[in-house]
């Protein structure tokens, strides 16, 4: 960790520090939401494969159900993009 004394820091240093924090926030937004959707998809995926093993025509439905929690990570991605570029 770089120790910055705010009273002595220049404006550039402070701005760089803030950009770093924003990047960490963006990383957390994508990373945590990624883990969350993975946890949700784990069971749904297993169930979809189980159902498909018996009835192949359930492939389409199973696929859609499996990717529904994907929205969580997309929200995370959107938040990350907002943080980084706005």
């Amino acid at each position: 960790m770089v120790d910055i004394n705010l009273a002595e820091a220049s404006v550039e240093q402070i701005l760089a520090n803030q950009r770093g924090l924003i990047a960490i926030g963006a990383g957390l937004a994508v990373g945590l939401s990624g883990i969350a959707s993975a946890l949700a998809e784990k069971d749904i995926g297993a169930a979809a494969v189980g159902a498909m093993a018996e009835r192949e025509e359930l492939f389409g439905k199973g696929l859609i159900m499996t990717v529904i929690p994907e929205t969580i990570v997309i929200f995370g991605l959107v938040v990350a993009i907002l943080l980084l570029f706005l």
Binding site: L39, K42, D43, I44, A46, A47, A48, V49, G50, A51, A53, E54, R55, L58
Partner: peptide
């Protein structure tokens, strides 16, 4: 611990059994 806890292999078997049930 997150992976080990939870539903313990049930989603696969229950979904498969439900599909089997629909074939009765």
């Amino acid at each position: 611990f997150l992976i080990k806890r939870g539903s313990k292999k049930y989603p696969y078997i229950t979904a498969r059994v439900r599909a089997m049930k629909s074939k009765l």
